[in-house]
Amino acid sequence: MKGIFFAFLGGAFITLQGVANTRISDAIGTWQAASLTQLTGFLAALLVFLIVRDGTWGQFKQVKPLYLAGGALAAIIIFGNVTAIQHVGVTLTIAVLLIAQLLFTFIIDLNGWFGVVKQKVRLPQVIGIMMMVAGVVILKL
């Protein structure tokens, strides 16, 4: 039960994040909003890190530089998320975003890109994505 609570709250926070970024973008501009929320998030995470100290620079050196730079994608992700919410609203944005996210994760798994363990296509995944697309079509009919 506690696990469901945390997962549920986590999902709510992700949506809240998109909405908050959109509101801040309306007031001060999208790149400014993306920079501001990530800078304050970075400082907060740094504070937590300085308390728990669960990593060292040496550990980062073990990781391919490409993977270390993954966080930079957030600039485009936030810009895309905010622009989509401004154009089509929160529900449709999140729905389409989730489909793209699950579908591309699925494609990465199928091809074993980025060194992930290769997986076979499973019918429930195909049906699931088709249902999600059908849901978006119903949203927009």
Partner: peptide, 13 residues
């Protein structure tokens, strides 16, 4: 934009 964002989220994950 939503499609691009979702695709990049999966890569970032």
């Amino acid at each position: 934009f939503a499609l691009v964002a979702g695709t990049l989220v999966s890569v970032q994950n």
